[in-house]
Design a binder for these strands. Structure first.
Lengths: 136, 136
DNA sequence: CCGTATCCGAAAGGATACTG
DNA sequence: CAGTATCCTTTCGGATACGG
């Protein structure tokens, strides 16, 4: 998550900073409904290491996509939520999910292979079904 | 462009294969209006090396996103065009460009820095203006 | 509970030279 | 013109251990 700052004048490169990473859309998608704690987020995205999650959250926070609220209690409690800018990304992600899902099914048919959804981001996929129904 | 095959069951990861790369959206965007030759594509995307362009085109071709037509002439001529599946990606890319552009301008205002659009993918940005007008 | 610090391997992307 | 082949650098993401 170091230098995604290149080619700053291009809207595509700019957007890729936020959605191009392996876990970025997954994280944002989890946060779409409201605040989540660090470990909740971690548990929702299996295979995602703490380090990478921290890096991503820090990056999002610096960029104003996500805001962080710390409760100085014992045990500590930290909540992350989307900012308004972050919320704007959700419809974009929905579009991407929509395409990805449609062409996933296509490949399934084309190659006649078994459809074995990865456990990872499985919830994302389930949530997508809702989106699809809503969109018609 | 080697192993983008992981997490095959997730629609997001699936879509990222095609739009997550540094130049992928740029290439697809260039092809949105019709067939282009290898060098035309190359010239349209400065800073993109031949190797990377070749890799991307080969990947897209294998995945059925782009089709390739070779004219056995001297000098050689090869044309690349989007397949129907590839065309489906254009609206998705438009959404992404739209978000990227909006938040690029936002940052510009927030940070009060000079807006110096990168030459890279400059045309993409210009074309975006058309898209924006059309979309309202 | 919520991270940080350190180290590591894989892989994406780039530079350059060469070929049918 | 349209690529290949080779080498090299960067950086992304993962494992593990430790700290406030």
């Amino acid at each position: 998550m170091a230098s995604k700052e290149t080619l700053a004048g291009c809207p595509v490169q700019h957007a890729l900073q936020y959605i191009g990473g392996k876990w970025q859309m997954g994280i944002l998608w989890q946060l779409r409904k409201g605040a989540l704690r660090f470990n909740t987020l971690k548990d929702a995205l299996p295979n995602l290491s703490e380090k990478v999650l921290t890096e991503n959250l820090k990056f999002f926070e610096e960029k104003g996509i996500v805001s962080k609220q710390s409760f100085l209690s014992v045990p500590p409690k930290v909540e992350y939520r989307l900012t308004a800018d972050g919320q704007d990304l959700i419809p974009v992600i929905e579009k991407i999910i929509h395409w990805g899902y449609a062409h996933l099914q296509e490949e399934k048919v084309k190659k006649d292979t078994l459809f074995t959804p990865s456990v990872v981001m499985n919830e994302l996929q389930q949530e997508y079904n809702t989106v699809e129904k809503a969109a018609g």
